[in-house]
């Protein structure tokens, strides 16, 4: 297993390098820069600004400089927020997005797992149909429709919670519910499908024949295999939750990294864009590796290749 992880980690290096290079040159080859949007910048000021940030150097020089600093964990200064480094901005905003993502994932698992299990165990009864239909609705209503509707109902009409902001625990409810619902629906469907498949297998019949209680059959024998499709989905799901937070943070005006990323792209804040992309890519690759390891651990028939 350690060899598997080591090999995957080694593979990560060229992938990250390609991502960094592609992003770096893509945002540079397009006309417009971080200072062109501002009005009334005289040519001299512009030259001084560019000199200050090293933008007057040849592009390949800037690229190598960037990589050199990156090796020391330095993501450079932000172009739009004077006197702030990208590291500071990320340290400031990432915890908010992580909290939003983690709570949403909890909501998704907390709603989706029981719903899917219930549907599978009561197959082809009205309970199953109700659960499955609910999941399908959840899957079809996008977050940017669900979120505003929640706000309209819970905040504007009933005044239960605030419409936006990120201060008290109550402010967490709507955003996490919105983001979690979509993934809860997908998780419910996968759980149902996985459990139905496993429950038909011989080892379940054997367990029943031995006289194991229904609870033991389900939680002791079936669940482990039934959750496999779910585990392989968690990689993309976490990616989705991370990027899904762009919309959620916009709707609920949450000061997280997602909103910052979209703004930085609009502002052409080169270093902030690059820093965020590198961070997201690293996070995703690490999470996917984790998912792969968990998968083999859950399913002994698979082997680390």
């Amino acid at each position: 297993m350690l060899r598997f992880i080591a090999r995957r980690l080694l593979e990560t290096i060229p992938v990250l390098l390609i991502i960094i290079t592609a992003t770096f040159f893509m945002i540079r080859f397009v006309p417009g820069g971080p200072f062109t949007a501002e009005k009334a910048v005289t040519p001299e000021i512009l030259r001084n600004l560019e000199a200050h940030y090293g933008l007057n150097q040849p592009l390949h020089r800037q690229y190598l400089d960037y990589l050199g600093r990156l090796l020391h964990g330095d993501l450079g200064p932000s172009f739009k927020y004077p006197n702030r480094t990208v590291n500071e901005i990320i340290a400031d905003k990432l915890p908010v997005s992580l909290e939003l993502g983690a709570l949403s994932l909890l909501v998704a698992l907390g709603l989706g797992l029981p719903l899917g299990l219930l549907a599978a165990l009561r197959r082809n009864t009205w309970i199953d149909y109700l659960c499955s239909a609910t999941a399908m609705i959840g899957l079809s209503v996008p977050t940017f429709v669900l979120g505003p509707l929640f706000v309209l109902a819970a905040a504007i009409h009933f005044h239960w919670v605030n419409a936006s902001g990120w201060y008290g625990p109550l402010d967490r409810v709507l955003p996490c519910l919105t983001l979690g619902c979509v993934y809860a629906a997908a998780i419910a469907r996968l759980t149902r499908g996985g459990m139905l498949e496993v429950l038909q297998q011989d080892f379940i019949r054997t367990a029943r024949a031995k006289g194991a209680s229904e609870a033991r059959v389900i939680f002791g024998h079936a669940l482990r295999g039934g959750l496999l499709p779910l585990v392989s989905y968690l990689g993309p799901a976490i990616a989705g939750i991370l990027t899904g937070s762009f919309v959620i943070e916009t709707i609920f005006q949450i000061p997280g990294l997602g909103r910052e990323f979209v703004n930085s792209a609009f502002n052409r804040d080169y270093t902030l864009v690059l820093g965020t992309v590198i961070l997201y890519a690293t996070l995703l690759i690490a999470l996917n590796l984790l998912v792969d390891v968990v998968q083999v651990w859950l399913n002994p028939r698979l082997k680390f290749e």
Partner: peptide, 17 residues
């Protein structure tokens, strides 16, 4: 395994010109 949504966003912003 890549954060593709991010690339789509970057592409849409930077290729606007």
């Amino acid at each position: 395994a890549l954060p593709f949504t991010i690339f789509v966003i970057l592409l849409m912003v930077f290729m606007k010109g």
